[in-house]
């Protein structure tokens, strides 16, 4: 009998392993293996002709860290991702709260509509923003047509345009993350606060907002990581005037054909994001305790 009792956990563990094996194999093949290849590539050398030669050299990393442009790009990426995520949060929160609360029979339809932009290609959405924000776009046409401005206002191909476009592209993810986290929000708690004399804005500040902090933490984390790795939106809305880590990696790899530099910058970005996420997790855990 004791033998069977000891067998049970082992069999349970084997079943678990068998169930996650396909996912592990897939991740290993399409994620871990290429990442290892990327890691190896970063230590190769680039000859004067631009050709890559196999080597075990730290030269690429040295030039990466010696270049002041790396720090500037890092700051651009982190700050822009932070602002875009914050903007997405502020815009998505009321929407998600409404979707969570509504008794409407169109609730599922409204939820699908709120995340529908995910169904449209990022490129198409970027062109939508260009049609709105461009020098000859809707907004500038309205501003100049009404005589408010004589010259077109630069709304795109700068950090402002990229932040706006990025925030918009993050909103569906933010809404989904917030909706998933709003489960802890109990309507009765808000009603209790009201019966105790709290006007609606006080109920929001003292009950609703604190109870949705886990949802905010989750949504912010998810969207920040997505923003750091976003490429299409910064590339097209930045118009070559916005310098971020993701666009720099692409330029190194494709434009300059400097694969070791691209690999080193990609690894650097990965470590940076992991560190930021770890710091964020530690910070929120301490705040919760």
């Amino acid at each position: 009998m004791s033998g069977r009792q000891r067998e049970q956990p082992l069999r349970g563990r084997l079943t678990g392993l068998a169930l996650i094996a396909p996912a592990l194999v897939l991740l290993g093949a399409i994620y871990l293996w290429p990442m290892l290849g990327l890691g190896r590539m970063a230590f190769n050398e680039t000859g004067s002709t631009g050709a890559m030669a196999p080597a075990l050299s730290l030269a690429t990393f040295r030039s990466l860290f010696e270049d002041p442009f790396t720090l500037e790009t890092t700051w651009n990426s982190v700050w822009l991702s932070f602002v875009a995520t914050l903007l997405a949060l502020v815009l998505a929160y009321p929407l998600a709260l409404f979707l969570h609360r509504t008794q409407s029979r169109f609730r599922s339809l409204l939820t699908v509509l709120a995340v529908a932009p995910m169904l449209v290609s990022g490129v198409v959405r970027v062109f939508g923003w260009l049609a709105l924000l461009g020098d000859r776009g809707l907004i500038n046409a309205a501003l100049m047509g009404s005589g408010l401005t004589a010259q077109p206002t630069r709304l795109v191909y700068n950090y402002f345009g990229v932040t706006l476009g990025l925030a918009e592209s993050l909103m569906p993810y933010m809404i989904l993350a917030l909706l998933a986290g709003f489960g802890r929000l109990d309507r009765a708690c808000e009603e209790a606060a009201a019966t105790l004399g709290a006007p609606p804005w006080r109920v929001f500040l003292r009950v609703t907002l604190p109870l949705t902090v886990p949802a905010i933490v989750l949504g912010f984390l998810l969207c920040f990581v997505l923003a750091m790795s976003a490429y299409i939106t910064p590339k097209l809305l930045g118009g070559g005037r916005v310098f971020l880590l993701a666009t720099e990696i692409f330029d190194h790899a494709i434009t300059n054909a400097n694969w070791p530099a691209a690999a080193a910058l990609a690894l650097y970005t990965l470590v940076l994001v992991l560190l930021l996420v770890a710091a964020y997790a530690a910070l929120t855990r301490r705040a919760e305790a």
Binding site: D186, C189, A192, A194, L196, G197, V207
Partner: peptide, 17 residues
């Protein structure tokens, strides 16, 4: 509700967690 001065005890207690 917030100006009525009614003490309400909810079925689920609705304590602020």
């Amino acid at each position: 509700a917030h100006r009525r001065n009614m003490g309400y005890v909810f079925q689920s207690y609705a304590l602020f967690p």
